[in-house]
Computed example of a mutant assay.
Amino acid sequence: MQIEELHWFTVLCETENVGRAAAELGLSQPGLSRALARLEAEIGAPLFDRKGRVLTLNRYGEAYLAHARRVLGEAEAGRRAVAELASPESGTVAMAFLHTVGTWLVPRLLLSFRAEYPGVRFQLIQGGSATNLAALERGEVDLAITSPRPAGPKLAWRSLRRERLYLAVPVGHRFAQRRRVRLTEAAAETFVANKPGTGLRESSEELWREAGITPAIAFEGDDVATLRGMVAVGLGVAVLPRARTYDGGVDHGGDPWLRYVPLAGTGGSRELGLVWRADRWASPAVAAFRESVLATAPELP
């Protein structure tokens, strides 16, 4: 049976007349009578008692009507839910992003977008680059902010900005007052780092390879805030972006207990970008947010 046949059945129940029901539905009387006959044959019992042109719902029909209305109600609720999700004014955007951009970049992007689309809801998750890309692959999120640029023919990527990386050291460290430092000079240092599978770990490993060093790693953590704490207490140094927060349009940076020493050379940065599945349909809300992010990118500090 089809959803429209259930709708026809409920209209018949309300009108108790094939002619009136057919006129209301814009159908021919013979066509509606044949549809009712098919439905009753599929159910295996008559749903109405017939007295001429008048139809009276019997006990089989009453039992079936309750379920038909429930199915129609669920179908309508599903239609409304999809329409709401797909609406550019009140839809939902699911996005994954790196831990390091959750305090400044993501708030900045949301602030710009929500000024124009206050009714759009967001489902946000934080994770490493591998976790975020896996969520994108499974269809759990529409967009991801990650680094470095991922490979894959189905992935679309747009660069947002380059983020400078530093050698983070405690305030009393021998490099703390340096204007810049080469990673080769830190070859003997103990490092703390993100766990493998994160974008920052990949960027760190790329810089270590370029410098020709294999550092000793004292600790591998899940988030950058923990790494900063470990650096502050002297457990090791780390390759990190500067701590930043976005508050009411002001971009703040720095940690009083750390020193961020710029890395000498050309590789002391990483590229942050927005990625999505090019082979998947994007709802109007997702498309609007994506365009907003790309339009905001040139304004990022």
Rank of each mutant, 00 (worst) to 15 (best):
P150Q: 11
A186G: 00
L27C: 01
S269L: 02
R242N: 01
E220R: 15
E116G: 02
R59T: 08
S283R: 03
G31K: 07
L294R: 07
R277S: 04
V250M: 02
G253I: 02
Y64W: 14
A75T: 05
L25D: 03
T245M: 10
D247V: 14
A288H: 03
C13G: 13
E42W: 02
I3K: 06
L105R: 10
L12Q: 02
S28G: 15
A186P: 06
H99T: 07
I217Y: 01
E14Y: 01
A288P: 03
L133E: 09
P262E: 06
R244M: 14
G254C: 09
L12W: 04
L155P: 10
D222Q: 12
G234Q: 12
N194D: 09
K154T: 14
L12E: 05
G273F: 10
Y246W: 15
L167I: 05
S112A: 15
F97L: 09
R79G: 09
G197P: 09
E291N: 13
T198W: 04
E137T: 11
T296D: 09
V169I: 08
S90P: 03
R209H: 11
V120G: 06
F113G: 08
L274V: 06
G26P: 03
V233Y: 00
L85H: 09
A135L: 14
A135K: 11
G52K: 11
R164M: 02
D247Y: 08
R259Y: 08
A134H: 10
H173V: 05
V171P: 06
V233K: 10
Y246V: 02
R108A: 15
L274F: 09
P301H: 03
G273N: 12
A297D: 08
W8C: 13
G128D: 04
T131R: 13
L25S: 04
G102H: 12
V224S: 09
S269Q: 11
A35E: 07
A282K: 15
W276Y: 05
E89W: 14
F113D: 03
V101F: 09
A287Y: 01
L109C: 12
V192C: 10
V261H: 07
E5Y: 02
L294H: 04
A232K: 07
L227Q: 11
A94V: 00
T15P: 00
G248Q: 11
R38D: 09
K154V: 14
